[in-house]
Design a protein around this nucleic acid. Sequence first.
RNA 1: GUGGCCGUAGCUCAGCCUGGUAGAGCACCUGGUUGUGGUCCAGGAUGUCGCGGGUUCAAGUCCCGUCGGUCACC
Length: 369
Amino acid sequence: MSAVTWSSIATDGAARTGWLETPHGVVRTPTFMPVGTRAAVKAVDSADLASVGAEIVLANVYHLMLKPGAELVARIGGLHEFMSWGGPLLTDSGGYQIFSLDPEIDEEGATFKSVYDGSRVHLSPEEAVGVQARLGPDIAMVLDVCVGLPAPVEEVEAEMRRTLRWAERCLQAHQQDDQGLFGIVQGGVDSDLRAESARETAALGFAGFGIGGLSVGEPADQRNSALEAAVRELPADKPRYVMGLGDTDGLLDAIMRGADMFDCVLPTRLARHGKALSSNGDFNLNNLRFEADDSPVDSSCSCHTCSTYSKAYLRHLIRMKELSAHRLLSIHNLHYTFQLIAGAGTAIEEGRFADYVKEVRITRAEGSA
RNA sequence: GUGGCCGUAGCUCAGCCUGGUAGAGCACCUGGUUGUGGUCCAGGAUGUCGCGGGUUCAAGUCCCGUCGGUCACC
């Protein structure tokens, strides 16, 4: 019996809703995981996360192994204790940093430059598993190689194969029976490579599957077909996690194709830059037209920010670079994202997911027109 | 009163010596950001060059006057 399991509640076409069971609690899927790279979701705290509807939070191996270090977190009692988050946690392995920080990669592992002092840091598949054993999240990810798109198909194929070899090594090294390990599907936007990667990764037998290497510059239709190709080869009774995806259209597209879990910096990063997500279409609160707008960011939103503050006030906070602007807009953007996802779950259960998607898109388009 | 310095974009200023399509930074107005470096990038709008006169083909720039600010000295 794996530490992490998933069971279906209902399906509607390819879309599905279910329960993800972890050592630290049960999560309703589809779900969104706010990104707390350094054991902190920027600008908000664990009480804020609970208030916006977060059930599972993400943190990052590469960043935490540098500061404060996995040993220190372990000594304090693990990541849950350290960050005072009692619910489920997932840690990303550092695979994305292989993509974004341009390290040297060989078959053994990757060598990065520390973002803190420039020193060389080594990370192998086994080390990534070891760090995650000490951090103690409910779900650990294998170390994968994510390729930026567009890229030559030879490169995409080579790194997909390397990811498979590394996945086997991660599985070998993984000893934690109180922690689920997820494999990661790669293969760019090539359907054959995606299918092969999914099939081979599934055959290794993980508790769940990340679908990585998407939302890295490819058009939406290519992303969607790559996702379909991967999902076709993945077991129906295991969770599917589309890594790094978090815009409204992308989430709906992916849920429609059978994805269960997501994470993305977008809601919180946009918040720090003054951009608001809204059921009536997203907008930039910096815009002059909100200078004297005394209405809330989203009149149909029940979050702390929308029930307390006006657009005019939030715009003022943003322009004055008040720190509270980051928190208040992050709370709203996260709440918006959870509302969207929860609405999708309910719609799937009631067998009206297609109508839900249509409704969300029409309301957003009309509002921004 | 005398002498020096200053007056150019909303702000701080460069350009003046050596005349040749008025500039920078910030601010302002937009857009971008997807397994996070609270950034960064891209685009845009903005002028009575204090005012008046003179020289010149041509003056923000040179000359004369004048107004305002500022400092020093009487």
